[in-house]
């Protein structure tokens, strides 16, 4: 996978404002993934792994951590720009909760590109949607690529 990605290196000149970022990140969220995330960041709020707590809080099942969605959006950007690129900024506003077993797809669209001091910069709108097309997290990102 990495070899393929490095062969298809993203070049600043090829980037078109308005173009979509390939949907490189698509994950079916399992309880195991939520537990791995909880342990990785030491966030043990039980609504993300305990069905009883989730039901008491009014959710049909356990829900996905917001910062996990943010980290998946960050993964989309670094996976897209490759090792030569640099992720500089990322924002993510949480609009809706996602339930376990949903498939989350990270998407993006180039909103601006500019050159400054010998470096190429790209702004993108980014979001997380499920396989029914419902957007749950919306944000933006700034990355740089060598010219």
């Amino acid at each position: 996978m990495e070899n393929t990605a490095s062969r298809m290196k993203l070049r600043f000149d090829d980037i078109v404002v308005g173009a979509e970022i390939p949907a490189l990140v698509q994950e079916k969220i399992t309880t195991q993934m939520l537990v791995e995330w909880a342990a990785a960041v030491r966030d043990f709020f039980p609504v993300h792994y305990d069905q009883n707590v989730a039901e008491k809080m009014g959710f049909p099942t356990v829900i996905v951590h917001g910062p996990l969605k943010c980290a998946l959006l960050a993964r989309l950007m670094v996976q897209w720009i490759g090792e030569e690129g640099t992720l500089l900024e990322l924002t993510c506003e949480h609009r809706k909760s996602n339930l376990v077993e949903e498939t989350l797809i990270c998407k993006g669209k180039v909103s601006d590109k500019f050159e400054e001091k010998g470096c190429g910069y790209i702004r993108a709108e980014i979001w997380v949607e499920n396989d029914k097309g419902s957007k749950s997290a919306i944000g933006s990102s700034l990355v740089s690529l060598p010219l």
Binding site: G66, P67, E89, L90, T91, C92, E93, H94
Partner: peptide
């Protein structure tokens, strides 16, 4: 409370 959003500068 509810978690509303994240903003990062790397």
């Amino acid at each position: 409370g509810l978690h509303g959003g994240d903003e990062w500068k790397f």
